[in-house]
């Protein structure tokens, strides 16, 4: 990882990726290093809340499909 890559601002996609992997509970060490240097706690918490909402909505959708 170059230093330019290390310190650039996190994109929405990068936050989404970190949060999705967090839900699965697995993360590559190199990706983690990148997350640690690029993401701020605020971004992670907001990303986590959005992720949790999406997760709940997906489950509700799945339940609706199953019960119909």
């Amino acid at each position: 990882m170059t230093s330019a890559e290390k310190n650039k601002k996190a994109t929405f996609w990068q936050i989404a990726k970190a949060v999705s992997w967090a839900f699965f509970g697995v993360r590559k060490q190199s990706d983690l290093d990148m997350d640690a240097s690029n993401l701020t706690p605020k971004q992670v918490i907001i990303g986590g809340l959005i992720g949790a909402t999406l997760f709940v909505l997906t489950l509700i959708l799945l339940v609706k499909v199953v019960t119909n």
């Binding site: 509970g25 697995v26 993360r27 060490q29 983690l32």
Partner: peptide, 8 residues
């Protein structure tokens, strides 16, 4: 998998 542990 330290990082996985944190995320999990």
């Amino acid at each position: 998998g330290y990082s996985s542990m944190v995320y999990a």
